[in-house]
Structures are given as structure tokens and as C-alpha cells.
């Protein structure tokens, strides 16, 4: 399929979905009839998505409103990435997309078409933990463990970005990850250790 074809088929698709949307809004009776064929309804509401997660390629069909976070947790059952606030205010959902740390709760899954996502489940090498995972254990950089995957994903990026040159810099660049148990000083210790060891990747 060439680009123009893609655009055309997309345009057709949009026409159809527009019709569906109009139905949804205008007539409950018609929608109810439509519901009898859920498959058709979902076909029109869903989009194809190609996404690589932790090195595994996925071909999925998702509603555009599904966030990357909910895709990971509810559809791919990768629950290591956490939902804490769902509004980009806690950092528990931090993952790497094409190597950059982001809040997966504010990213629509369809916006990540063709991208590579790395989650907490994808950073260890088999049974060998990532140096940052080791460092979090060594320094007890957590208590309940719920914000921890987000902290670790953020911490790995913090070192890679070159923002781990002092305690103060680490503190500032790790402030997008809230730890309600208050393990902050130990988290900074962990990042410092990895930075010193040069084990950032």
C-alpha cells in the first residue's frame, strides 16, 4: 500500500466511524441494534496498532482512547507499570518509549504506533537484575514497592540523560516520581551508586 492508498483507506475508515459516531449520538434505538453486532461496532471503533514492548512485537486493535498505560496493564497484562494518579502527577506509570522516559498514562496507545516501549519487566537480563534494580534493593529504595517500577525506569533515564551528577541534580530530576512511603534519600543513594559504577544501560 502506498502512502496515498493509506490516506484513502484511512479517509474511508473515518467516514465510517463518523457515521457510527453520529448514530451513537442521535438514536439509542439504532445504537442498540448496532450493539447486537458488537464485532462490527468494535471494528469501527478500534484501530490497528503495531507496537514493540520489551522486544516483543505486538499487532493489536485498540480504541483510540486507550492509553499506553491501560494497554500495558489490561491488555498485555504487564502490570509492573503502575497506575497511581492517571493524570501525569505521580510518575508511577513511567516507561521508556524509544529510549525516553514518559508518563504512559498521558500517552494514547495509538500515538505509539511503530514505537519501542520498555517497561520494568523488560530491563533485567533473565535472572540478572539491571544494575538499577540491584541498587534499589541494596539501598532499600522503597517500602511498599508500588511506585518502584516508575522510580527505577525514571532513574535509569536520569543517569542516561546525564542528570545524575550530584545529589541535588538527581533529586530535581527524580521529582516527577512520587514516593509516598518517603524512600527518597535511599532512591538518591541508589542512583548515585549506579552513576558511579557507570552502569547506566
Amino acid at each position: 500500500m502506498n502512502n496515498q492508498d493509506q490516506k484513502d483507506s484511512r479517509r474511508d475508515f473515518l467516514k465510517k466511524t463518523t457515521a457510527m459516531a453520529a448514530l451513537t449520538i442521535s438514536s439509542p434505538v439504532l445504537v442498540k441494534a448496532g450493539q447486537h453486532d458488537e464485532k462490527i461496532a468494535s471494528f469501527f471503533e478500534k484501530m490497528d496498532l503495531k507496537i514493540e514492548v520489551n522486544g516483543v512485537a505486538h499487532q493489536l486493535s485498540v480504541e483510540p482512547r486507550v492509553t499506553l498505560l491501560d494497554l500495558l496493564r489490561e491488555q498485555l497484562h504487564l502490570t509492573g507499570t503502575k497506575k497511581g494518579c492517571d493524570h501525569g502527577q505521580c510518575g508511577a506509570c513511567t516507561v521508556h518509549v524509544d529510549g525516553k522516559r514518559i508518563n504512559s498514562c498521558l500517552s494514547l496507545a495509538v500515538m505509539n504506533d511503530g514505537k519501542k516501549v520498555t517497561t520494568i519487566e523488560g530491563i533485567a537480563d533473565g535472572d540478572n537484575l539491571h544494575p538499577m534494580q540491584e541498587a534499589f534493593i541494596n539501598h532499600d529504595g522503597f517500602q511498599c514497592g508500588y511506585c518502584t517500577p516508575g522510580q527505577i525506569m525514571s532513574a535509569i533515564a536520569c543517569v542516561q540523560e546525564g542528570h545524575a551528577n550530584s545529589r541535588e541534580e538527581i533529586q530535581e530530576f527524580m521529582s516527577g516520581n512520587i514516593c509516598r512511603c518517603g524512600a527518597y534519600p535511599h532512591i538518591v543513594d541508589a542512583v548515585m551508586e549506579v552513576k558511579k559504577g557507570g552502569k547506566s544501560s
Binding site: R73, H77, L78, T79, G80, T81, K82, T119, I120, E121, A124, L129, Q133, F136, I137, N138, D140, F142, G145, Y146, T148, P149, I152
Partner: peptide, 21 residues
């Protein structure tokens, strides 16, 4: 001196209440 559930918590393997399949 290491937390015994540390590995589960740093790997995402720790299963919280909403996360059971």
C-alpha cells in the same frame, strides 16, 4: 539486611490487588 520481597518489587512481579488476571 535486604528486604525479602525486594526482587518482586523491583521487577514488577509483585502483584497488587488490581493486578490479578
Amino acid at each position: 539486611e535486604k528486604r525479602v520481597d525486594g526482587v518482586a518489587k523491583v521487577t514488577g512481579a509483585a502483584t497488587f490487588s488490581a493486578e490479578h488476571t
